[in-house]
Design a protein around this nucleic acid. Structure first.
Length: 304
DNA sequence: CGAATTTGACCTGG
DNA sequence: CCAGGTCAAATTCG
């Protein structure tokens, strides 16, 4: 497994000729954190479907998101620290300055737009200073929010196109949240797990505002059991998941492990009765279910 | 028929 | 000028 964020994957060992980098432990930490992120995302895709009609589903979803956000921010800080250390240690100032500039730009960026003057045009390119959180996961689509695809682009030097999504309620509720999903290349620069797991790079931009204004930030929110979109949580949408063929085996094995301990067999059966699988082509489709739920690869979990 | 997706055109920062 | 982000008409889907 190789987990790198964006541009840094093109520089696996920026200063290889110096032997081991001074931040070797940081690299290791980053790798483990990325792996943890991926596992959390997978766990989320398993747990949330199991919480259908459970009033705690919203809180659980938000907790998952919070964990992922924390992890992403920690990774960003770590990467920044790593970059700064390298820049300081390296005598070649010009080269490193360039590397730093690139990396800071491409890697996870956590900041506010600050004094960034907004263009007056509606159609504008996304500012790099906008807050974004990157996540590498084999389960790119089930994150508790409902997204509408608005574009797809072929990206230079990438085998797979990048898909652009915005919050389904972006228009009516002014939610600015967007995300991009791109399947990782399976060559050396990509990140594919040892068991041929297909990995996706998901980048979240902006915060969801399609939730009631009364919601507090993260913890301690109490959820109204039948509140649908008026619940005190950030998850406000009908949620959907697609589990592709690759995911089937790993999820099943994971659940089998769980079943030995805590997970009741009925829950397992229920989950995988509802879940069917569809092939993963260029971009994994995810769509609304047909309200019957059986037989063609899509899970629908209703409103939270 | 309305909603979601696709896709080529358009726009803009670097 | 190019790469990539967004728009919007056309198309598909439920």
């Amino acid at each position: 497994m190789k987990v790198e964020a964006k541009n840094s994957s093109r520089h696996p060992s920026p200063r290889g000729r110096h032997g081991s980098s001074p931040s070797q432990s940081q690299v290791e930490a980053l790798r483990e954190m990325a792996r943890g992120q991926s596992l959390v995302a997978q766990l989320r895709a398993v747990v949330l479907p199991a919480l259908v009609d459970d009033e705690r589903a919203g809180v659980v979803a938000q907790m998952f998101q919070s964990v992922l956000d924390c992890s992403a921010k920690a990774m960003a800080a770590l990467k920044l620290c790593q970059i700064e250390n390298q820049a300081r240690a390296d005598a070649d100032g010009v080269l490193m300055a360039d590397d730093k500039k690139r990396s800071v730009k491409k890697v996870v960026v956590v900041s506010d737009d600050g004094d960034n003057a907004k263009p007056h045009r509606q159609r504008k390119r996304r500012r790099l200073a906008d807050e974004c959180v990157t996540l590498e996961t084999p389960v790119p689509h089930y994150d508790g929010h409902q997204w509408r695809k608005y574009g797809q682009k072929v990206i230079n030097n990438a085998k797979h196109p990048r898909s652009y999504y915005r919050c389904t309620y972006g228009q009516e509720q002014g939610c600015k949240a967007t995300k991009t999903v791109q399947q990782k290349d399976d060559n050396g620069a990509g990140a594919v797990y040892e068991d041929d797991q297909v990995m996706f790079a998901v980048v979240y931009y902006g915060q969801h505002t399609c939730k009631p204004p009364s919601s507090s930030d993260t913890d301690g929110t109490v959820v109204d059991s039948d509140s649908r979109c008026s619940s005190n949580i950030s998850v406000t949408c009908t949620s959907v998941a697609v589990i592709d063929h690759h995911r089937q085996s790993s999820l099943e094995s994971s659940l089998l492990d769980m079943a030995e301990e805590d997970l009741a067999t009925e829950e397992y059966d229920q989950l995988f009765d509802v879940a069917a699988y569809e092939p993963l082509d260029s971009d994994p489709a995810w769509e609304m279910d047909d309200a019957h739920g059986h037989g063609h690869g899509i899970l629908k979990f209703g409103h939270w």
